[in-house]
């Protein structure tokens, strides 16, 4: 099921709309739980078990275990919630940006600096 409204297509961009929210609810709820240090520790002890506790789909679980951000977004993950998962592994926004764009972190940072010139 999805909304019948025509969607705006923006290359390389997923708008977190109702379809994404429906698909990603369990994944985002798990990530919301990472506001608690105890939950972060529990996740690290048994990642797969923690995903199961939140009823993640096999697609979501695989994306989480492989820390693949694009797959997590495809599975309905919201950037702000996924950032809490990234934080557990000490990933900053340049790590996450580099992974999604297939660039090295240095190249990604250079791209940001370049955007400030002219």
């Amino acid at each position: 099921m999805s909304t019948t409204r025509q969607k705006r297509v923006i290359p390389g961009t997923t708008i977190f709309d109702g379809d994404q929210a429906r698909k990603g609810y369990a994944l985002n709820k798990m990530c919301f739980s990472f506001n608690s240090a105890d939950n972060r520790a529990e996740f690290l002890k048994d990642k797969e078990g923690y995903c199961a506790k939140f009823h993640l789909t096999p697609e979501q679980t695989e994306a989480v275990l492989s820390l693949n951000v694009l797959k997590m977004i495809a599975a309905g993950g919201n950037a702000y919630f996924l950032a809490k998962l990234g934080g557990i592994f000490g990933l900053d926004m340049q790590d996450i940006g580099a992974q999604q764009t297939g660039m090295t972190k240095e190249a990604f940072k250079a791209k940001l600096v370049e955007a400030g010139k002219n």
């Binding site: 290359p11 764009t101 940001l112």
Partner: peptide, 13 residues
């Protein structure tokens, strides 16, 4: 700014 997707790092000065 854009954190997510293949367009991550997008900035429009």
């Amino acid at each position: 700014h854009q954190l997510d997707g293949q367009r991550a790092g997008f900035i429009n000065k």
